[in-house]
Amino acid sequence: MYVESSSDSAHKVFFRVLGPLRVCFGKREVSLPESRQLTVLAVLLTEVNKAVPVGRLIDAVWGDTPPVTADKQIQTCVWRVRKALVQAGSRADLIETVRGGYLLRLPDGSVDTQLFEQLRERGRFRARAGDPRGAVDDYRAALALFRGEPLAGLASRMLEPVAAYWAERRLTLLEECFDVELALGHHRELVGELSLLVEEHPLREQLRWHLMTALYLSDRRADALAVYHAGRAALISHVGLDPCARLQELHQRIIAGDPVLPADAVPSPGAYQGPVLRGVS
């Protein structure tokens, strides 16, 4: 799924970085087997439509120990990436040589990270406008773009912060999505997914709050309390802190048998309207 940004179908290319790096022309994938080529392309994708200095590409590939021929090897890598893309059907000038570096010129919607942001924003617009079900559809479509860890398999110190950034964006959007889905009454359906996420991220208190809420609303009060105590033990063991005030309040509400979601958790219809996102449906 991607935004069609060019009228010339032969030139349409879509890059996937929310998982192993992939280059797609429709249903076809372009093979770039050498890790250096993939690393160079990944760095260019992190700076789409911006000039990337050769030195930055050298750092990404070799770190602090580049060979004396690093400049020429980067030039060769870029030439091979260009050749593979052109053979697959891209424009010859997709990667431009600029003063001191290279520039990957792409229309909006050509990278899955761009599509992720478009869907996330439209989901937020729909939530504010009183369309929670539409918001969940967009959130889930955005989350489905992830196919594993971002930029998986690329061993570059320079790319590690980029991968961590997008992994965090995914978790944050999941938390937003759970807020809306719980308010819509989807608590029973969420228990399994949330249980796996809490096991994977035991110190993430927002996810634990969602799991406790889903269990409590599913008439599993004892399980919800057990999740709280397991989280408290993990926090004390790892960082020496008690759970946050929100978790503690939820814990007390569950003990008392009080409601845990406000009546206005699902936004009521409003006048706010977001922009129309071309090609996203």
Rank of each mutant, 00 (worst) to 15 (best):
I95R: 15
S110R: 05
E121S: 05
A164E: 14
E149Q: 14
A167C: 06
S90P: 07
L104Q: 10
A155W: 03
A167P: 02
L115H: 01
D93W: 04
A129F: 05
E96R: 15
V136F: 09
Y139R: 08
D108M: 02
G153M: 03
S90Y: 12
R147N: 04
A129L: 03
V136N: 12
F116P: 00
L94Q: 08
A127Y: 10
G101C: 04
R91H: 09
G148D: 06
Y102P: 00
R120M: 02
F146W: 09
A142I: 07
E121F: 01
R105Q: 12
A129K: 00
L154Y: 05
E121W: 01
D112R: 07
S156E: 03
R147K: 13
F125G: 02
L151S: 06
S90D: 14
R147M: 07
L119Y: 00
L94E: 03
A135I: 13
A127N: 12
D138S: 14
I95M: 14
L145E: 10
L159E: 09
E96M: 08
M158Q: 14
E117K: 09
V98F: 10
D108L: 09
E149C: 02
R99F: 07
E96Y: 04
R133K: 12
L154G: 02
Y139V: 11
E121H: 06
D131K: 14
L119N: 01
G130N: 05
L103C: 13
S156L: 01
F116M: 04
L143T: 05
E121Y: 01
F116C: 04
L143H: 04
Y102W: 10
A135N: 12
L145S: 05
W166N: 08
F125I: 01
V162T: 15
D131F: 15
A92I: 04
G123L: 01
R124L: 15
F146M: 04
G130R: 11
R140V: 11
R105S: 15
M158D: 13
Y165W: 11
R147V: 03
L159K: 12
L159Q: 13
G109I: 08
D108V: 08
Y102D: 00
F116V: 05
G109D: 09
W166Q: 08
L145V: 06
A144D: 15
Y139G: 09
A152M: 11
W166V: 04
D138E: 14
R133D: 14
Y139T: 11
R157F: 00
L103H: 11
E121I: 01
L103I: 01
L94A: 11
G130P: 02
D131A: 13
A144M: 06
L145K: 06
L154S: 04
A135K: 11
R91M: 07
Y102M: 01
R157Q: 04
D137M: 13
D137V: 14
A164K: 15
V162Y: 15
A144P: 06
S90V: 06
D137T: 14
G134Y: 10
